[in-house]
Every structure is written in structure tokens, then in C-alpha cells.
């Protein structure tokens, strides 16, 4: 019973998640964000993921069903990883602009298949797994950024070549920033659990 009660999310968190989702889905904001490749990839997509993350209660991570079926959170993180990778395909990004079906799929899959599993599984993942995922994220961002900068052609038919270059540079910056943050945590020693109990 306690478990079920725990599953009910704090009202504020779910309201924030739902509110964020609705704001992102507003036609005028959608148009503004999707007009530009940087805004589309580095604002709209991550915020859709964040909306999903907010919608899932913290207690869901320790729910029995989730623990039995996904012991270390590997399947969940794998789902999040692959669903996110799908929307990194240039063709998917174009399709989301050209075809309403793909746009709807994007708005459903990013919160549900990336945000929710991340919120659910990341806390349960062993340190080794987390390190593996982080290393992959950094190298993926680095390679994608480098490709976008070096590509002789536009990869998306709906975006200009200078927008593609801007995204490439930002992806490289992001990879650098994440690496620095990881190094900072490792050597300066920021521990979320210590901070919470303090």
C-alpha cells in the first residue's frame, strides 16, 4: 500500500512537468523553436525530455515492479538512449517538421521513452553503468558536433548550413562542459547524497 502511495507524485512536480509539456506544445512556441536548428535540437528536444522526467515521481525508481523487471535500470537507460538517438537522425528531424505524424511521435516519445526512463532508472544505475553512459554521451556529442561542422553538405533539408555549423559548435561545447563537470565531480568531490543529508 505504501508503495502505491509513494507512487503518487508530488503535485508540484507533476504540474511543472505537465505545464512544461503544454507550453512546448503551444503552436506559436513550437514554430519559433523549430524555425532554427539550434533551438529545435538544443532547446525543444531537451525540454521535452525534462517534461517527462518531471512527470515521474521519485518513488517510481524503487517500485517493486520496476526493480524486478529492470534490476540495474539498464533496459530503461537503453530505451532512453536509443529513443534519443532516433531523434538525432537528420532525417527524423526533417520528418518532424514535414509530417504531423512524426511531430506527434516526437512529442510523445521524448517525454515518455527518454524522460520517464531516465528519471526512473538513472538513480538505480550502478556507478560503472553511469560512467559508461556518460562517456558515451560525451563522445557521441563530440562526434556529432564535429560531423556537423565538417559536413560539406546540409544534413537537414529544412535548415540552413550556417545553422548546422552553429549546432556543431554548440554540441562540441556541450561535450566539453559535460567532461569538465564530470572531472569536477570526480576530483573536487561534489556528492549529491552528502549534500542532501547535510
Amino acid at each position: 500500500m505504501a508503495e502505491i502511495l509513494n507512487l503518487i507524485p508530488s503535485f508540484r512536480r507533476i504540474a511543472m512537468g505537465a505545464g512544461l509539456f503544454l507550453v512546448l506544445a503551444a503552436p506559436s512556441l513550437r514554430e519559433v523553436l523549430e524555425q532554427d536548428m539550434t533551438r529545435h535540437m538544443l532547446i525543444q528536444l531537451p525540454f521535452l525530455v525534462l517534461a517527462g522526467w518531471l512527470l515521474i515521481p521519485a518513488a517510481a525508481a524503487s517500485c517493486r515492479f520496476v526493480v524486478i523487471w529492470d534490476r540495474f535500470g539498464i533496459a530503461g537507460i537503453l530505451t532512453a538512449n536509443l529513443a534519443a538517438a532516433y531523434w538525432m537522425l537528420p532525417r527524423s528531424l526533417d520528418n518532424a517538421i514535414a509530417l504531423p505524424v512524426f511531430e506527434i511521435a516526437k512529442f510523445i516519445s521524448l517525454p515518455l521513452l527518454v524522460g520517464v526512463p531516465l528519471g526512473c532508472c538513472w538513480p538505480r544505475m550502478p556507478m560503472l553503468g553511469k560512467g559508461f553512459v556518460m562517456a558515451n554521451v560525451v563522445s557521441m556529442l563530440g562526434i556529432a558536433g564535429w560531423l556537423y561542422l565538417a559536413a560539406p553538405v546540409r544534413v537537414c533539408v529544412f535548415y540552413l548550413s550556417d545553422q548546422q555549423e552553429a549546432v556543431g559548435r554548440l554540441l562540441l561545447c556541450l561535450a566539453g562542459a559535460i567532461s569538465l563537470a564530470v572531472l569536477f565531480c570526480a576530483f573536487v568531490g561534489f556528492r549529491p547524497s552528502a549534500a542532501r543529508t547535510a
Binding site: L78, A83, L89, P90, R91, S92, D94, N95, C156, V157
Partner: peptide, 20 residues
């Protein structure tokens, strides 16, 4: 995921709208 990626890329042949 393999099935979805396979169909999205025409069997891992194309990754862009131009390629498709």
C-alpha cells in the same frame, strides 16, 4: 530499436532526407 532504426534508415542505407 534495431527494427525502428532499420525502417527509419531504409535498412541502414540513408540517414538524411536527401539520401532517402
Amino acid at each position: 530499436a534495431m527494427a525502428v532504426f532499420g525502417s527509419a534508415t531504409e535498412g541502414f542505407r540513408v540517414f538524411t532526407t536527401e539520401g532517402a
